[in-house]
């Protein structure tokens, strides 16, 4: 398994990288962690003529809080998300999700920007970003622009990134008190893509009423999916088994999984319902303990 030949560029700045992308056009691909791209190149499913390695651009890897917003650099490795104390404190969902992405070595290379920019509904971060109501920052020839996560995923392997754009940052609102989050996926073995995965972030007000909810689904739809009806079933109401069941039912109805080696469509809908319930409970437990 050997890639086809290509020209390799290793720009030292964002501006240089963007100008190379413009210059080389559609024949160029960005190399970030490389763990989706290089396997495809080895199989010769991807045969870029130019590879723009952004790993030597300084300042793209960080996890920090600024003015009530969590900012994650696009080049931040999965392993850094996994071990970040800031994330452990405010977003336990990151420890959940990173542990289930591939394996430790892949997480040492793979980046959150790459995971999102690949536009693959089987990847785990898209659902998490939906649950967390994230915004993606794309930097292109015209400068920076913010793309809400709900406008980011377009179609099968398609995102709102234009050619010449680099995904440079993810912005996530810091959660108010009373918030908990959780992610789990059913997988055939560790490191597998999800049979189905569910990300939940939920905020409970002082009176026990749900004030905010985010639910994202992994690998049960051609594009990453927000379970919007499920969120609405929870918001503004006290959390009861009834509302939770309703949320679970809606999510299982609103997704569009396909039957494959991981299971039938019906099975996947059932897993979605089960995981929505379990992740709500998990998130609420964490909210109560925070």
């Amino acid at each position: 398994m050997i890639p086809q030949s290509f020209q390799y560029e290793s720009p030292g700045s964002l501006a240089e990288a963007i100008s190379m992308l413009q210059q080389y056009g559609e024949d160029a691909k960005i190399l970030s962690g490389g763990h989706s791209l290089i396997p495809m190149m080895k199989l010769r499913f991807a045969t870029p003529e130019y590879l723009i390695d952004i790993n030597n651009i300084p300042g793209l890897s960080y996890i920090r809080e600024e003015n009530g917003v969590l900012k994650i650099g696009g080049l931040t490795r999965e392993a850094e998300l996994e071990h970040s104390d800031l994330l452990k404190q405010h977003f336990p969902i990151f420890a959940d999700v990173t542990k289930l992405i591939a394996d430790p070595q892949v997480r040492n290379m793979g980046t959150i920007g790459g995971n999102l920019a690949h536009g693959d509904a089987a990847n785990d971060h898209p659902a998490v970003m939906m649950a967390l109501h994230a915004t993606v920052v794309a930097t292109g020839p015209e400068g920076e622009r913010e793309i809400p996560i709900d406008e980011f995923f377009y179609g099968f392997y398609m995102t709102a990134l234009q050619h010449g754009d680099i995904l440079t940052e993810i912005r996530i609102p810091m959660p108010p008190p009373g918030t908990g989050s959780a992610y789990h996926k059913m997988e055939r073995k560790v490191g597998d893509y999800a049979t189905a995965g569910v990300a939940v972030q939920i905020t409970i007000g002082d009176n026990g009423v749900v004030t905010a909810a985010g639910i994202g689904l992994t690998n049960v739809n051609p594009v990453p999916l927000r379970a919007a009806r499920s969120e609405q079933a929870l918001i503004g109401k006290p959390l009861t088994e009834e509302t939770i069941n309703e949320a679970a039912l809606y999510a299982s109805e609103d997704c569009n999984p396909s039957s494959d080696l991981r299971g039938s469509e019906e099975y996947k809908r059932s897993i979605v319902a089960t995981l929505v319930k379990r992740m709500i409970h998990q998130a609420v437990n964490r909210a109560n303990n925070s």
Binding site: M186, R188, T195, R262, G263, S264, E266, Y267, S270
Partner: peptide
């Protein structure tokens, strides 16, 4: 015997 097979049989 996979989880899917078990679930299907129970179903």
């Amino acid at each position: 015997i996979t989880p899917f097979k078990v679930w299907k049989a129970l179903k």
